[in-house]
């Protein structure tokens, strides 16, 4: 039996640098807080500087290390600049969480090109060029973890947001392709597919009563997930405990979306 890894008490992230896009709110912020509490230094990327700074302040208040990076992931030149800022600060990025995303409902007939483009620019181009900017460093160090936040919508789809479903499915395609392309450098690429998660946005949209009602009716585990439920999986996939897992998707959905393998 035997193993080279001697890190059994927890999936520690001590000494690692984790770059999280869209970390100013919701799941991204929760990811940032959790990985920081496990010892990682966190590059908190967001398009909104104020919310990024809030996440940084929360991490600092808990004794962690983080700094804010502000820019628009849908612009490849921003992705490049932001990646350089992170690498200049700490000399490396060990794990990238492509979390930034947007959502809107818009029927097929009501879709305008600008909506379509924005959806793909943020999710697909954003993840693509952020990854492109950080891969050279990972290759040079012969190690890295890339975690793409997709969605159960990318697996089973929802009604009235075809562009969102398609953008998330594209992320799953990138995940699989990159896993194969980057494996020779020990870079793992995996996706997480969150289902119903009680983010601030979901609470604003449905209210707690609406959330409870939907949970009772539709979710086998009869509750929404908490952002921390997603963060736990992010931390696991960012840690050395998942070194042999690549090209895979992990749905976190309380029993919704039981499909595929």
């Amino acid at each position: 039996m035997g193993t080279a890894i001697d890190n059994r008490t927890s999936a520690s992230l001590d000494g690692k640098v984790v770059y999280i896009t869209g970390a100013g709110a919701g799941m991204g912020r929760e990811d940032a807080l959790l990985v920081a509490s496990r010892g990682a230094r966190v590059a908190v990327q967001d398009i909104d500087g104020k919310s990024a700074e809030e996440t940084v302040a929360k991490i600092a208040a808990a004794g962690g290390q983080a700094f804010a990076i502000v820019g628009d992931v849908s612009k490849p030149e921003d992705c490049k600049r932001m990646a350089k800022e992170a690498e200049a600060k700490w000399g490396r990025v060990d794990a990238l969480v492509n979390n930034a995303g947007i959502h809107e409902r818009r029927d097929l007939e009501a879709m305008e090109e600008v909506h379509f483009d924005r959806m793909f620019d943020v999710h697909v181009k954003g993840s693509f060029f952020t990854t492109q900017a950080l891969v050279p460093g990972m290759k040079a160090r012969k190690a890295g973890k890339i975690i793409n936040i997709a969605s159960t919508a990318g697996m089973v789809a929802t009604v009235g947001d075809a562009h969102y479903c398609a953008a998330k499915a594209a992320l799953l395609g990138l995940t699989k392709s990159w896993a194969k392309e980057l494996a020779p450098w020990n870079i793992n690429v995996n996706a997480i597919c969150p289902g119903p998660i009680a983010t601030e946005l979901a609470v604003r949209n449905r209210g707690w009563d609406g959330i409870r009602e939907r949970a009772e009716r539709e979710i086998p585990l009869r509750r929404y997930g908490d952002p921390i439920d997603v963060a736990y999986a992010v931390a696991f996939l960012a840690s050395s405990e998942s070194d042999f897992i690549t090209g895979q998707s992990m749905p976190i959905a309380g029993g919704l979306a039981i499909v595929g393998i």
Binding site: D229, F244, I245, T246, G254, I261
Partner: peptide, 16 residues
């Protein structure tokens, strides 16, 4: 919050 899922661990051999 994870249930009904299958996690493959295979070093990238099976990506399906």
């Amino acid at each position: 919050f994870i249930t009904g899922q299958a996690m493959a661990i295979n070093g990238g051999t099976t990506i399906v």
